[in-house]
Every structure is written in C-alpha cells, then in structure tokens.
Computed example of a mutant assay.
Amino acid sequence: MANPGDTAGLTRLIENGAVVPGEIVAVIGKTEGNGGANDFTRGLATLSFSLLLAKYLGLAPDEVTRKIAFVWSGGTEGVLSPHATVFTRGADDAAPDGRSKRLTLGIAVTRDLAPEEVGTMAEVRLVAEAVLSAQAEAGITDPRDVHYVQVKGPLLTPAAVADADSRGARLVTRDPNGSKPYARGATALGVALALGEATESALHDGMIAQAMDVYSSVANTSAGGELKNCEILLFGNSIQASGDLRIGHAVLQDVVDAGAVTRAAQSALGDTDAALDISQLVALFAKAEAPPGGMLRGRRTTMLSDADIHYERHARASLGAVLASVTGDSAIFISGGTEHQCKPGEAPIAAILRV
C-alpha cells in the first residue's frame, strides 16, 4: 500500500481474477500511523477498502464493513511495509480428504461495548463467547487446532471518556492511550478463557493488565478508536477444510528470536524437524514486546526509558528487522503490546504455509 487509502493493489487482484470480491471475508493489515489513540490511518484504510468493495458487491459501504472483517494495526516502523492480507473463502474442487487438516477461519463480533466495559470482565466474557462462536464456524472441535486469534477492540477515546463522565460511570482509566493495555489485556484473556488456557475463577477486573502470569499463547490483540465492538478472527486447521494452506504458531522468546519463524513453520507442517522453506511461507503474524526491565539477553536497552519514542515502536521496528532478515519479505503483520499474550517478555507468532 502506497498510503493508508491505497486500494490499487486489491483492485488489480480483483480485475485480473485472482480475488473474487464476493469471497472476501476478512482483511488484516498494517498502516503507517503511530498505533496510538489518535491513529486515524486505520479508519481511513477501512473506509477506502469498503468504498472500493461496495462498488463490486453492490452494497453500501457500511454494509461492506458488516459483511467483511477489517483489522488494521498502525505502526510500520523500520523496515515494515504497509500492506493488507486479504482472506477469501470459496468452494474447492477437491473435497476434504478426511485425513489432512487445512487452514480454516471463523469470524465473530461482539455487541458494542459501553466505555465503562472496556478493559473489564464484561469485555473478557463477551470476547470469550465470540471466540467460541468463531471456533464453531471454523469447524474446529479441539482447541489445540487453534493457532491464531486476532482480536481488534475499542480503546477509550476522549469522546468515550466524556460520555462515561456524563453518566457517572467509572472507567479503568481516563487516559486514552493508557487504556490500550487494559483493552488488549481483556480481549486476550477472553481468548484464554474460551480456549481453556485460563479459568474464570482466576480472572477478575483487578488482575487485567496486572497479573501477567495468566495469558493466551495464540491471542494477538489490538485496540483502536475506530470501533466500538470487538472483532474476532480465529485461525486454525480443520479436517473439514480443504485447500493447500496450514497454519501453526510458536512463542517468540524475545524481539531477536529469529528461530521462532522456523518453529511456527514446523508447527504448521506438524514436523518439529522440518527445515524452513521460505517459498512455502504465505503470511506471518506476530506481536512485539520490549524485554522486561529493558534488559535483552544481559544487555541494557533504552526501549522502556526513551521519552521520545514509545517502547511499542522500538519493539515493532526491532522485531520487523529480525523477521524480515529471515523471510526476505518486509510485509509482516507485527503489532505492539502483549498484555496477557504469552509470558512477560515473550510474544506469539503465527505462520501460514502452503503445503
């Protein structure tokens, strides 16, 4: 994408027959904004793509956004390339063989959240319910076959704070940017609860974005001011699916863990001894986090003490360079902030391979 409103690439894919507009079910992408509460590049990208697809689908733009899930993450620091990954679902000439599991996708959305529900157990439970719905749609019965759950939910905008104030409602914070950890954490815990990675007895409002020893290893969550509900895209492998794609996941030990790409690919292939074949790699999705205390493998970093550049931007740039050095491709989805997404200092990574 040449800019957040650039739809020329998708237009070419549609015009040359590579993508059928009616088969598009989701778009996940990176835009060149700051990733903060005032990052309006995400809303611009959704608007631009919905206007384009409205023409092909014969729908109003707002109907397009109800039909297709759009998830954008702002921040393409360093070598990361602004891009969109388009997911389509269509009929396959070959029926599932009943033995091989292939990539499948389930989508669900929650109702709109009130400002006072953002970052609370109300959001956790709503996301958990939606994750189970998405898992059912994907045809996945075993949670171990779920490898990547992308959730985009709301953060607290100044308007949302004012609305809560007018009703005397209590918020987790009054700081829009400070609400991101709570929002991301609550949605990640919703994934953990739905997939059996956490029990509800261990969850309560006071531990969200605080007790980081409770987490999901497959959640990848973001928060933005461009939406009020939570959108859940659940990816896994199912025996009910056909096609030539599989997905796997691994855990990044830190932002320089280049070996995680190979481990995620091996997970997709179901072979822990498989060598990495970059030609098979279709898409890569990861979270980036600063090392605890700023210490990376015994060396001090300034990620957490830099007053000029937020640590998320440091982390995205660092991890982007490491992963691109392995894949040779900078069109990688990397989002910052890992509250309740793997252990502190670690982060999830998922890979889709053509097999």
Rank of each mutant, 00 (worst) to 15 (best):
A169R: 00
S217H: 07
A209T: 04
S318E: 02
D213Q: 13
K287M: 10
L53R: 06
A95W: 03
V124W: 03
N177T: 15
P115A: 00
D39G: 01
L103M: 10
V322M: 09
G168K: 00
R246Q: 13
E346G: 07
P291K: 08
H314Q: 01
E123Q: 15
R170H: 00
V64A: 04
A324G: 01
S242K: 03
T11R: 14
T338Q: 09
A84T: 08
S48G: 13
T338C: 12
A347Q: 10
F40Y: 11
D257K: 08
R42P: 01
G298D: 10
L44K: 11
Q240I: 12
L296Y: 14
G328R: 10
G225D: 03
M295H: 10
P158R: 03
P143R: 01
I309F: 04
T46M: 02
S305L: 14
L103V: 09
A347G: 07
I239T: 12
Q135V: 02
Q266Y: 05
V191F: 04
H204W: 15
T7Q: 01
K287I: 02
A138I: 11
G33R: 09
L113D: 09
N3G: 14
G248V: 06
S267L: 07
A8E: 09
A286T: 10
H340P: 05
G248H: 10
G320C: 09
M295T: 14
L155P: 05
